[in-house]
Design a protein around this nucleic acid. Structure first.
Lengths: 344, 344
DNA sequence: AAGCGAAATGTAAGCGCTTTCATTGGCGGA
DNA sequence: TCCGCCAATGAAAGCGCTTACATTTCGCTT
């Protein structure tokens, strides 16, 4: 048995195909009785509107694309849980608005924007990890003139081209460091890459420096160790710091994964966390609360992040003016920083 | 400037629109010179084939839908990392085959199959957590007659309708339990729901029972505590077990999340893991290796799972005969089970 | 020189829908 | 009684592409 079309319904309902189309979309132009009749028949036939035909004709796709560009090589399981959390939130938000969500985890292609929007695959694009920030900015600038519809999770910098949503990284770094200082720590390290290809980590680092300064402590450049993203990077960074012989009693890590790796390295080297070394992460990924010790961290609200990304993108698609937006961070105090925990 | 169409290219290349279509698809019917010329022009115009038009005309979508039906209510971050790992692998596999991936995290709708396949949104569907197994089976049976294209991650049961990919849950349960027995544990509990709505957990439980029997130990029904999926469930289950006063020295948990929750509860009740209580999980989610203690667990290979799901589904779509498939499990020995660790 | 087949291209018919514009019928006001 | 108007419906034109079929061209055989 072939798939039913709107024409089949039209014949059965003894109306024209255009009336069927209208009835199915609840157009006020069609008589309520007719509408009901048509919809009943459609249900009986298990009819569903062909989205390709609809999209082609109406020149829109009702689809959002989410590009997550953090390819760790062959493996697939290694995607940062923070991004996956946003993905989950985005998926919900998109569904709530009646859109479909197209997901791709590939490296950013040469012209990702055209591939998705121009090819009428999606009405707009959400970008979640864009690789090198500078390359990305250049690409964005090119795209600015074309009326492209995309939004990026990343650093919110005034005057920067493109539309960005991100959290207050500087403040987050400040909050974490401040807390460690209040707990009596004086030799606080920072784990995270601060090259200008990583503006978010760099901002967290800025906050860290500012907190030290505010407390009258002077920062020791040797206590900053690069680390890109994974647990492995954090592990390596902590080892490197230990080997340097430089004394330290606390670490601010630019992400939870880095913190997890660092803690693992510290403990296996015989340093107790938080007794010997306090550690604070960044992101508040789901496992942070369930580790031992439970991870103190700077939360980025992924649920809100996803919602904001979707809402703003839809506004952009609708042609409304949209601005970048800075989301607040919150320090979640658990066990890994020492001192009394506020919550679990 | 309007979007270029194949007709625009045809004019510029002084050929017919059909030749353009053929040239862009690398058809051998078109002269290599012409092809090059057409493709050059297409590139200059930043032309991309309109996927809606292509899909409509060619009656296929080049898209796979992934439905993840594990809605934890409002939140979004609570999706089981195990499924997210499969999602990642699926995304890669799908991309490698030139397909797009549509993702939905909603609860399964009344007719999810029609919504996606019938509506020409996708050529096939991957299901990743189907809610209640019995309801789902009923639905599948209905769908069997329609020539639906979908594949499910779940229990592989001979004679069962539908196409399933899953790991050898019974064996996994056996491996975990066997190990604990070898480590000298004699009062081994099981955390995980074993109602017939959860055939996978139930199989893991079967393996657990068989291992106990094989060792001449008799299972104590009071040492089995239900737990659905989250850390919270595991936490609660462990507390319940502690409160029962029943002595136990090890836990087999039906998932890593349950294990994480259980460990957290045990430790906060003053029981050291693995010294007082050994714990083994199931799944090998990314954090398992980085916890303290590192979690011993039964690995399900998510990378292979994703690849197999995609390959089999594509075969099904291509009309080839496809069978369900059982994937092997592997016990990853780390710290939480006591005894020497094989690997990290 | 005629004929024929293969290679290359052109022609045109839709895929199933949305939407504009035209048509119909019924009813109230003049 | 006639006209105009509104509500409801129908007719038809594509959206941009793929593809079956028709046509042209050209090199070769006979």
């Amino acid at each position: 048995m072939k798939k039913a079309t709107s024409l089949d319904i039209a014949h059965l309902a003894r109306v024209s195909q255009s009336t069927v189309s209208r009835a199915l979309r609840n157009s006020p132009l069609v008589n309520p009785d007719t509408r009901r009749r048509v919809q009943d028949i459609a249900r009986q036939l298990n009819y569903k509107v062909d989205v390709n035909a609809r999209n082609l004709r109406s020149m829109k796709t009702n689809t959002i694309a989410l590009l997550l560009c953090e390819d760790p090589g062959g493996g697939a399981a290694q995607i940062n849980p923070f991004f996956l959390s946003i993905l989950g939130s985005v998926a919900h938000a998109v569904a709530r608005r009646g859109y479909d969500l197209l997901v791709s985890f590939q490296q950013l292609s040469e012209d990702w924007q055209a591939d998705y929007e121009h090819a009428n695959r999606a009405d707009g694009i959400i970008l979640l990890g864009y690789g090198n920030y500078n390359d990305y900015l250049k690409k964005i600038s090119e795209l600015e003139q074309a009326e492209a519809h995309f939004i990026t999770w990343g650093p919110v910098i005034p005057g920067q081209p493109g539309l960005f949503i991100g959290c207050d990284n500087r403040k987050g770094g400040y909050q974490a460091t401040e807390r460690l200082i209040a707990a009596g720590r004086r030799h606080i390290g920072f784990v995270g890459e601060i090259s200008d290809g990583c503006p978010e980590f760099r901002d967290r680092f800025r906050g860290y420096r500012q907190a030290l300064e505010a407390a009258g402590l002077n920062a020791d450049a040797a206590l900053q160790i690069d680390g890109e993203s994974s647990e492995k990077d954090g592990h390596r960074a902590a080892l490197q710091l230990l080997e340097s012989g430089r004394p330290f009693d606390a670490l601010v890590c630019a992400s939870d994964l880095l913190a997890i790796g660092a803690i693992s390295a510290l403990r296996h080297a015989g340093h107790r966390v938080p007794d010997a070394v306090s550690v604070i992460g960044f992101d508040d990924i789901p496992t942070a609360a369930h580790m031992t010790p439970a991870l103190t961290t700077v939360r980025q609200d992924t649920v809100e992040a996803g919602q904001v990304l979707v809402e703003k993108l839809l506004q952009l698609i609708a042609g409304k003016p949209v601005d970048s937006m800075l989301l607040p961070t919150e320090l979640i105090v658990r066990e890994s920083c020492g001192g009394p925990a506020d919550q679990r």
